[in-house]
Design a protein around this nucleic acid. Sequence first.
DNA 1: TTACATGCAAACTGTTTGCAAATAT
DNA 2: ATATTTGCAAACAGTTTGCATGTAA
Lengths: 128, 128
Amino acid sequence: MRPTRQRLSLLGMLIETAPRHVTAEELFQEARQAGIPVSLATVYNTLNQFTQAGLMGEVVVGSGQSYFDTDPSSHVHYFDKSTGEIYDIPRDVVTITDLPEPPPGKVIDRVDVVVRIKNVCKADAPGD
Amino acid sequence: MRPTRQRLSLLGMLIETAPRHVTAEELFQEARQAGIPVSLATVYNTLNQFTQAGLMGEVVVGSGQSYFDTDPSSHVHYFDKSTGEIYDIPRDVVTITDLPEPPPGKVIDRVDVVVRIKNVCKADAPGD
DNA sequence: TTACATGCAAACTGTTTGCAAATAT
DNA sequence: ATATTTGCAAACAGTTTGCATGTAA
């Protein structure tokens, strides 16, 4: 992986703003505003490469867009669908115990935990 | 919500095969094969309506496609990315404790837990 | 100089939507 | 009769890809 202009710039932006959760589109917009010439495709490529290299994590909150996390370590997230925002939940506040054995031939890769939050007092329809 | 031919048929198929996790595309194919005249759009609409009505759950495992669960109650899933399969993990095997308070004005909607599994012995690259 | 990275636009996937025809009450 | 539902195709969002151009080693 070569230290190209774009990759270095994006990495710099991410480090400066860490810890955070960012979408490709968001990072793309910020880069453009910062005068960094980069294409959306390259932002996608770069984020994927960083993630694959273990520099970032991926937070899955729904079908739709992907969120990338500057903190690749295992931790739990709040996700507010109404705002699209993701927050970290301090480590070791949440405890998960007694995970069962995975099926034969399989190992646990990682455990994703997302705490979905919503505004209080909404008429709480099941699908809300 | 009217008990139309399509909705009744799809509900029947889901009940017969429950418990299971199904994508819209899968259910659509099965319905066609079973001779039920239904369109993909209607399958999507119907699954969304059932979910919204609390009859089904939605399992989020990645940006991409949505899985619908005939069991709407809160439980934990295994997800095997290599096969795209989702399994239930028996209730009360996994225990989550000490969830923190949500931000002011927010309440916890639900907690999604996905245990990602993969094949053993793969050269374990971080992004694997 | 040579392999890799970038940018653009087009392809692609899964999902939703607009509207006319069909259907349930 | 009338409001809802269906089906189709087109729209749509987010993401990936093919290929010519540019760039790092």
